[in-house]
Design a protein around this nucleic acid. Structure first.
Lengths: 253, 253
DNA sequence: CGGAAACTTGACACTCATCAAGGTGTGTGG
DNA sequence: CCACACACCTTGATGAGTGTCAAGTTTCCG
């Protein structure tokens, strides 16, 4: 259990120097007030792949944000199979599922090694009550989380598997751009099975969908590496249009 | 456009006398503070079936709560077809979809004639900043809304249409009990088509699902009137078990 | 290098979307 | 009060899409 020096350096850095500060709770908060927030943020040592931030049934104690790395939240049914409720990139709050009842209904699992901030909920509420800009920003990031959930539903109501997959890649790419990463050369942090459980599909269907998109020249896939070769076409597919190939032949107009 | 006297009487009543006060924003707020909240709540004249509280693209001005009656929120794709994002019963906040961006991504349509409260967002934030219990309750009702969205996803990932339908009835019944209505003799405020667009199914599939549940003795259906005849069986179906009939014969153990 | 996990591909059955027609109920106007 | 129109719901037939089972292949990590 040795701490590599890089950790200590990272741990010392406050929100002011964080790469996702403009997306996260600190966004729009003045320098002085930021220190108030900084005080209650716990910067934890790296979390290993597969580790959990909380389990289903845990009482809501803190919300979490990854500075880097990503998470999935899964809800485990009594029969033991997992549903993936969401994927969380850096800057996106994790743990809001417990806001309603005070008890987590999901568990948050690290998809990669990750550095996270932990923010105790009671302290967050206290500070938010004193800093109107923080309160406003808190509502905003919660709202963004609601927006992602609705995007998720938009995928799930699509009846065609390929539409769901296209929409998934489309949205993920968009979110990666938001945090300053490439939107066309992705490395998926999650497995095909995770994607399947996120999209309500069989994992084989996801695999076939990726293959199909590659055959159609929309993406290039190599395991978890995905290159978006034809963004316009991906967008079209995501919005429910049939593949371009078919459009020319059949459904013209 | 005459105002029947019953309206005036209703309009005068504040949160303190509202039937859903324990579920809505006033929950847990002391009598004195409640008056502060009451001041910013606008109680509007009844909304007719089919009327909209806001449209997609509208800037977030207010959030709404029905005192009675129900709403759906739908997101309209560019191709013009609707997806039903949620159903909203009395006491459940409507309009939170705009929290993230400040712009509504859905539109809220009255399913029945309804009486609603309108709460201007800027004033709500101001008052919440001054009343910690209100801030806390606001987060809670938002969290409950997030929870309902996750319930919605739980339906959508189910691969069997009948599971989705069973889960839908199960959840709706539960919510009706919450607002003091019968959980076994429901009158659905929404059409089969609305349900279909909510569940990601064809409307015919929903209709057949209802028929099937009736044949199996789980419910009794007559148009929008639904009687839950065998709650245990409904719960079982909702949780992914095969129908009891089949269980005895085939999948024993 | 070996083993396990992750991913791909194939074959087949079954569910469900779709198209089409008929039935039920409700409200409006004669 | 009846008749008509319209929206809503049910039912049937059929084919396409996808889940499932079953091998294989690749990648990753120890």
């Amino acid at each position: 259990m040795s701490n590599p020096p890089i950790d200590l350096a990272t741990l010392r850095k406050g929100c002011a120097h964080c790469s996702v500060r403009d997306l996260c709770l600190p966004a729009g908060i003045g320098h002085g007030d930021l220190l108030r927030l900084d005080e209650i943020v716990k910067r934890k040592r790296p979390v290993a792949r597969g580790e959990r931030l909380f389990h289903g049934g845990d009482p809501l104690a803190s919300v979490f944000v990854a500075r880097d790395g990503s998470f999935k939240t899964v809800s485990v049914t009594e029969d033991g199979d997992e549903q993936v409720v969401g994927f969380h990139l850096p800057g996106e709050l994790v743990g809001l599922d417990a806001l309603g009842t005070g008890v987590h209904r999901c568990e948050a699992v690290a998809l990669t090694e990750a550095n996270v901030c932990e923010i105790p909920m009671d302290q967050l509420e206290q500070v938010a009550a004193q800093l109107p800009t923080l309160q406003k920003q808190l509502l905003k990031v919660i709202g963004q989380s609601v927006g992602r959930d609705q995007d998720h539903m938009q995928m799930l109501v699509r009846k065609q598997a390929n539409e769901r997959i296209a929409l998934f890649l489309h949205g993920l790419s968009e979110r990666l751009v938001n945090i300053g990463q490439s939107g066309s050369a992705l490395v998926l942090p999650m497995s095909r099975e995770d994607i399947a459980r996120f999209l309500g599909l069989a994992l084989e269907t996801v695999s076939r969908g990726f293959t199909r998109l590659q055959e159609d020249g929309v993406i290039e896939v190599s395991g978890r590496r995905v290159l978006i070769a034809n963004r316009a076409e991906l967008d079209r597919l995501a919005h429910g249009a049939p593949a371009a190939e078919q459009r020319r032949r059949g459904t013209h107009g």
